[in-house]
Design a protein around this nucleic acid. Structure first.
Lengths: 325, 325
DNA sequence: TCCTTTATGTCAAACGTTTGACATGTCAAA
DNA sequence: TTTGACATGTCAAACGTTTGACATAAAGGA
């Protein structure tokens, strides 16, 4: 690979001059600029960002740690984050923690060694303390780890409330709520809180089912839904904490001869595009994934630039009513 | 951030000694090793990979360019690639080209500036020539760029043949094939070749529909399927080039009162997990996504290590029969 | 006693770039 | 004629690490 020295040699100028052209500093005549650009394209020169980063103490790298990029929600989130990162000149290092604490720790160390300018934590399997003394610029998703660490989430309580009240308003009398692992202390628990408040207030029967400890194992969803509907054949409403789970719920209803939404009404969460692949299409709570991506990058950029950021960032959710209610 | 000098100071040894501990070279006594490790953990030291990479001329970074990580196929592919990359000590820089040639070019330049050790090209919107004089280590997906550039694909012809013959064997007499943009010169065209061979040999009616130029726009799929089934109400078989398209086909059939598989049989492609969310579950051609990931990383590693690699790498596909046939 | 092995140190160069300090021009305006 | 803006150059240090050359010294065996 050509270096700045090669460019200088070929253009017949000094290295300093090339650097000045490259960084738009100092006085440069148009003719010199032309010669330099000419030499650069002739040599196919690409400045070595490793050397630049080393000197500038800034890599323009952002680390993204999520449970699994093949989960539709995180896939879309990753796509949006990468989109905005690219717009602002950042690059994304992708890490799938698989909800494995050891892997998560290793990834964090790797990102530190790589001198990323910031980390977006979409996976949280470690204790709050470990994140606290990380001393990296952080943005977290759906988890509050400290007063000084900005988090990003949506209005989970409102989402839970909208979903549950929709089911209630449609006349559901026995509603099941399928949520993630409540021990992980995520803000998405507010959905469950809202669910509980609503069903108790309405005085209807309800159930809460937690999915696996280690997250997103789809194989389990089927069995879980099957035994749920077997044990409680009179369930007439399901509020699932993701569209993927809702899709499995829908499947299981159809398989067992229940019609949706007549016999059972279903509300999902996220509004990933898969929600529209189902028949009937899933009613769901739309998470502002694009907004998440934009804000995550912005919050990191602000920190990198040493500007103050707000630590609590809750975006709005929206009920999207489709065919399953 | 602590440097190797700080560690040396705290441990009371020389920088060289610390480096020797870090890289396991030369003689080191156990006591010294202990002191060094102690100092490192006390200072929370993480060696600066930028500096290392600069010196070693090896970044352990791999670039991954795909159209869109939120598409289920590429999401899974990205996850698998990242998994194997991590196992072999590589990190993944994620790039979504959105099938935009300008973006793709920019990403390639960015990756070169970042001195990635190799690039995995899952998006191909540029002319072959541009990839040729790239002079980076490459692995491409589903596109042959040159004799000296390894590509990775599955047995597309066999996939197309399996899918079409299944439909024929079930008695379909008018089969539509929905494929990607045939002008892009991808190896996935072999699926279409196989389809044509099979339907012609069987002497049944057939149609070929290309999706949009700019790839994966789901909004279009619905309209496309709708007009297809309206214009040809007697279609009794559909072979779609992705499960996402197949899911939309299934939806449209159900919406228009056709029963699947009785009236229309559908075969998808990829076998992403979404294929099992549909009801009935999609019959599909399974692509070896895990194998793709493993091989992509291996092919790059071999090149990086200067070892010879085979340039043609075709993995096997498999017919997965489920509910839509 | 001498040689080897083990253990550690010093020193300097290298990776590719940026940046500041400073020198040396040319050219035009005051 | 002087001044200042413009244009370019030289030189060296810095970023954090690795590595080779070389020195030193203790411990152990022959």
């Amino acid at each position: 690979m050509a270096t700045i020295h090669d460019v200088a040699l070929k253009a017949g100028v000094s290295v300093t001059t090339v650097s000045r052209v490259l960084n738009n500093r100092g006085y440069i005549s148009e003719t010199t600029r032309g010669k330099v650009y000419g030499a650069m394209s002739e040599l196919n020169y690409q400045p070595n960002e490793l050397a630049r980063s080393l000197l500038r103490k800034q890599s323009n790298l952002l680390g993204l740690i999520i449970p699994d990029v093949s989960h539709p929600f995180f896939a879309k989130l990753a796509e949006r984050i990468e989109y905005y990162a690219d717009q602002e000149g950042y690059k994304i290092l992708l890490c799938n923690s698989q909800m494995n604490p050891a892997k998560e720790r290793d990834y964090i160390d790797m990102l530190k060694r790589s001198r990323v300018d910031g980390i977006i934590m979409g996976s949280h399997t470690l204790d709050i303390g470990e994140y606290r003394n990380l001393h990296s610029r952080l943005v977290t998703f759906d988890r509050k780890i400290g007063e000084d660490i900005p988090y990003l989430s949506s209005d989970n309580y409102r989402g839970g409330k909208l979903a549950t009240e929709l089911l209630l308003s449609k006349g559901c009398r026995k509603i099941a709520h399928i949520c993630g692992n409540l021990e992980l202390d995520m803000l998405s628990q507010r959905r469950t809180d809202a669910f509980l408040d609503a069903v108790r207030k309405a005085g209807v029967e309800y159930l809460i089912v937690q999915t696996e400890m280690n997250g997103l194992d789809e194989a389990r969803y089927r069995g879980l839904l099957q035994s749920l509907l077997e044990a409680h054949p009179d369930i007439d409403g399901i509020f699932a904490t993701s569209d993927v789970i809702a899709a499995y719920a829908l499947k299981e209803c159809i398989r067992t001869g229940r019609s949706v939404p007549e016999d059972v009404r279903i509300v999902g969460y996220d509004d990933v595009s898969a929600a529209r692949w189902a028949t009937p299409e899933l009613t769901t709570i739309r998470q502002p994934i694009d907004g998440f991506g934009r804000e995550a990058v912005r919050l990191l950029r602000m920190q990198i630039e040493g500007r103050p950021v707000s630590n609590q960032n809750e975006l709005a959710v929206e009920l999207v009513e489709r065919g399953t209610t």
